[in-house]
Computed example of a mutant assay.
Amino acid sequence: MGLDFSVIPKYLDIVLLGALWTIAITVCAAVVSFFGGILLAVIALFAPALVRWPFRVFSFLFLGTPLLLQLFLIYFGLVQIGVDVPAFVAGVVGLGLHFVVYNSDLFQTSILAVDKGQIEAARTLGLSRWQALRKVVVPQAVRDVIPPIGNNMIALLKDSALVSVIGVSELTLSAQRAIGSTYRPFEFYVLVAAIYYIINLVMEAVLRRVERRIQASK
């Protein structure tokens, strides 16, 4: 039958709307995973055992199960116990919590690399242990871990396509709906690949700029 890219303009608005949803999900989940990763890292390293162990179980569960299953449990499973989570929120929570665990490992390594003498110096200045962590240790750890965290954010963008299985009209699902009307999968999947690539390039450019600013501030 050959290729016919002339069918794309008619459905371009649908695909671009899906791209906006993809960006929104990625940004929201990235925020959850970033700050959640810091919190989980601090708890894993410094909280009492009674508090630390439940979070270790949480980490084990999210590391040991597929993201797709986690999305199903949040969206389809919670409703059975009376918690009806909207598809978009379920996607953000699922993606965010999945990457919280990976980010937490990075933050833990970076926090442990900070010179312990800085905590002692902060304590001598009258700061409590938690104030020293919040004002001295964690900011340094965050600066050092930005590059690998950036790689996780790019992986998060790619994994955001999985939220299509719970009905979120992100980029991939929007393209599939256009394909259902035109029976032109190759043309629309090429378009989707190009859009993902452009978003990826923008994210990499932003991350590089952040890294340069951090290096300049050291």
Rank of each mutant, 00 (worst) to 15 (best):
residue 119 I to K: 14
residue 30 A to M: 14
residue 120 E to A: 10
residue 91 G to Q: 13
residue 3 L to V: 12
residue 81 I to R: 12
residue 2 G to A: 10
residue 71 L to K: 00
residue 21 W to D: 05
residue 51 V to I: 15
residue 188 F to R: 00
residue 57 V to M: 07
residue 129 R to E: 11
residue 46 F to L: 08
residue 89 V to N: 03
residue 128 S to D: 01
residue 15 V to Q: 01
residue 106 L to G: 15
residue 214 I to P: 04
residue 157 L to M: 14
residue 206 V to R: 10
residue 36 G to N: 07
residue 153 M to V: 13
residue 54 P to R: 15
residue 1 M to P: 08
residue 141 A to Q: 12
residue 89 V to R: 04
residue 16 L to Q: 09
residue 34 F to C: 13
residue 171 L to W: 01
residue 200 N to I: 11
residue 80 Q to A: 08
residue 115 D to G: 04
residue 193 A to I: 08
residue 131 Q to S: 15
residue 137 V to D: 03
residue 211 E to M: 12
residue 154 I to V: 13
residue 133 L to I: 14
residue 191 L to K: 01
residue 205 A to D: 03
residue 37 G to H: 07
residue 118 Q to G: 14
residue 164 S to V: 02
residue 214 I to K: 15
residue 192 V to A: 12
residue 26 T to E: 07
residue 112 L to T: 13
residue 97 L to S: 10
residue 173 L to F: 00
residue 104 S to T: 12
residue 44 A to L: 11
residue 145 V to K: 08
residue 38 I to T: 11
residue 75 Y to A: 06
residue 181 S to R: 11
residue 40 L to M: 09
residue 47 A to F: 01
residue 167 G to E: 00
residue 215 Q to T: 06
residue 7 V to I: 13
residue 202 V to Y: 06
residue 130 W to I: 13
residue 158 K to N: 04
residue 203 M to R: 02
residue 189 Y to T: 08
residue 138 V to T: 06
residue 28 C to D: 01
residue 66 P to N: 03
residue 63 L to F: 15
residue 16 L to D: 02
residue 120 E to N: 07
residue 141 A to I: 15
residue 22 T to Y: 01
residue 30 A to W: 04
residue 120 E to K: 07
residue 174 S to H: 04
residue 48 P to V: 09
residue 84 D to W: 09
residue 124 T to N: 10
residue 30 A to Y: 08
residue 91 G to F: 03
residue 30 A to Q: 03
residue 27 V to P: 05
residue 167 G to F: 00
residue 204 E to P: 10
residue 92 V to N: 07
residue 162 L to D: 01
residue 41 A to N: 05
residue 65 T to N: 13
residue 80 Q to G: 02
residue 6 S to G: 10
